[in-house]
Design a protein around this nucleic acid. Structure first.
Ligand SMILES: [Zn+2]
Ligand SMILES: [Zn+2]
Ligand SMILES: [Zn+2]
Ligand SMILES: [Zn+2]
Lengths: 138, 138
DNA sequence: CAAATGATGTAACGATATAACATTGGAGTC
DNA sequence: GACTCCAATGTTATATCGTTACATCATTTG
């Protein structure tokens, strides 16, 4: 399996930026925040992101075109897919996995003779805090 | 509710391009295929795509940054979410929905006090035909 | 040390999507 | 028909996201 590779300076900086952030960040926002650390070009960010994705330390949210630190740096096995809930207002992300959902996908795949390799599961809506805050504002 | 708006020329051309295609198409591929019909700029495509998305006649696949015609132009209600399976090899798309999956999301949302507005559910893998074709090739 | 490997820096480019603004075309009045 | 309104269109420019190409530096390993 994947040896727990020690992170390089660039990788550590990008990971720390994501870990510190409250919301998912685009690659260019990360670049901007790391200007003072010597980052100059997008590729410096994308290369670090690639390694962190491989290591399972971060995720890319396709629906936002942005990256987020993994909430519980686990091995994301094929049999333990992860889903994300993203608040449209505060942009905070909840990461969860549900064997029952995985089971339904597996059942559909078996019926259809489709071999699942990966999945993108992102739900969008309003978190409890943002709904509470918005109740009196309409 | 949404009146079944008659499509404009541009919208009809974009929809026909997607309906005819075997795979999802990027906006720029659509633009290219409609050059002969007078299309010149990305916005002509994106504006038509926006309307078709509103009308529920097409979908955007976030994981591919591409668009696909809806296989069964239904009203995609909040209570009847749709999922996609995308073959990595032939790029064909299967559109399906599963009340049990929706139920699991609803259960998670209830537990977490999250209000779901929309979802992106895209699984990637190999279809039956492509697996069969690849079996003797390794 | 020498070779191999992986990370980095930099510039240029490609791909995806939107902003801004002028113009056109039809639907409903008068 | 003339007038008004509003949606759709055409066009240019720009914003945003991501990759190719290539030279350089660091680390490991024999
Ligand atoms: Zn994770
Ligand atoms: Zn929120
Ligand atoms: Zn559909
Ligand atoms: Zn296939």
């Amino acid at each position: 399996m994947s040896a727990p590779h020690r992170l390089t300076r660039n990788q550590a900086l990008v990971l720390e930026t994501l870990t510190t952030a409250e919301e998912p960040l685009s690659a260019y926002v990360i670049l901007d925040r790391l200007k003072d650390e010597g980052f100059r070009a997008p590729l410096q960010v994308y290369r670090a992101l690639d390694k962190l994705l491989e290591a399972g330390l971060i995720h890319r949210l396709d629906s936002l075109k942005a990256f987020v630190a993994c909430s519980t740096p686990h091995e994301h096995d094929a049999a333990d897919r992860v889903a994300f809930a993203i608040c449209q207002k505060c942009a905070r992300v909840w990461e969860f996995s549900d064997p029952a959902i995985e089971g339904r996908f597996a059942a559909w795949a078996a019926d259809t003779d489709f071999e699942i390799a990966s999945a993108t599961i992102e739900i969008s809506g309003l978190c409890a805090a943002c709904r509470k805050a918005g109740e009196g504002a309409a």
